[in-house]
Amino acid sequence: MATLEIHDLHVSVEADNGPQEILRGVNLTVKQGETHAIMGPNGSGKSTLAYSLAGHPKYTVTGGTVTLDGENVLEMSVDERARAGVFLAMQYPVEVPGVSVSNFLRTSATAIRGEAPKLRLWVKEVKAAMERLSIDPVFAERNVNEGFSGGEKKRHEILQLELLRPKIAVLDETDSGLDVDALRVVSDGVNRVRESGEVGTLLITHYTRILRYIKPDFVHVFAHGRIAESGGAELADKLENEGYEAYVKGGATS
C-alpha cells in the first residue's frame, strides 16, 4: 500500500531580503485510500507544501524528508516524482501555447504509464472521462489551458487526475473560484478517483465548502508553516463555525 511520509519538512523561498522560511517542520503521513484535508488561513504555507511535494524549483527544502513507499521523493526531479505517482492539481494551471490538450494528455499518459496507451482504447478512455466531467469534446483540440475559464482549468486538472491515476493526489485549492455546479462536477471527479481506493488524497483548501462533497478522513489545520491541529471530519465543522482566528493569533502571518 502506497504511503507518503512527510517528516519535519522545512522549506524556504528566496525573497527580496534573502531566504524566507515558509514551512517550519511539517509532519504528515498519507496512505493510499485516505483523504486528508489541509485547511488554513492565507499565507499559512498550504500551497508551499503542495508545490514542494511536486518539486517546484522556486522552493528550497532546507530540512526534513519526504518518502513515497520508502523512496526519497526530494531527490527526484519533477517528472520523476510524477512518474513515481505524485500528482499535483494546481491552483493556477499554466497555459502552454502550441500544445493541444489531446497531445498533452497522451504524452503525459505515455510518460506515466511507461508505454503509449493503445490509440483506440485511449480515445475511448479520454472521451468517457471528458463526458463525466462535462468537458466539451472540442477542448481536446484547444491548446492546454489557453483561454480556459477558471472552471474549465480545474476540470482539466481533474481530467488528468482521472487519466493518470496517481498514488498520491495533491489538490491545491481545486475548489477556489468555482461556482456550486462546477464544484459538484469537480468533486464528483475526485470522488470517482477516491472510490478506487488506490489513491491517497491531500485536499488543500481555504474553505469548508468542498468538504460537503468530498468527505475527509482527517482534517489538519495549517498555521505558521506547520500543522497546528489534527482531527477527524468534525474539526472542519469547528472551523466552519469559528474560523481560523484561534490559529492566527499569537503569530506573525501575512
Binding site: 511536486a54 500528482f87 502552454v96
Partner: peptide, 23 residues
C-alpha cells in the same frame, strides 16, 4: 510551463520538443 509539463511526468527535453513541435 516546463514545470507544468514535467509535473505530468514528461521529461524536460520532451517537454521542450512538445512545445516547439506544436508551435
Amino acid at each position: 510551463q516546463l514545470f507544468y509539463l514535467m509535473a505530468r511526468g514528461i521529461p524536460a527535453d520532451e517537454a521542450r520538443r512538445l512545445v516547439v513541435r506544436g508551435f
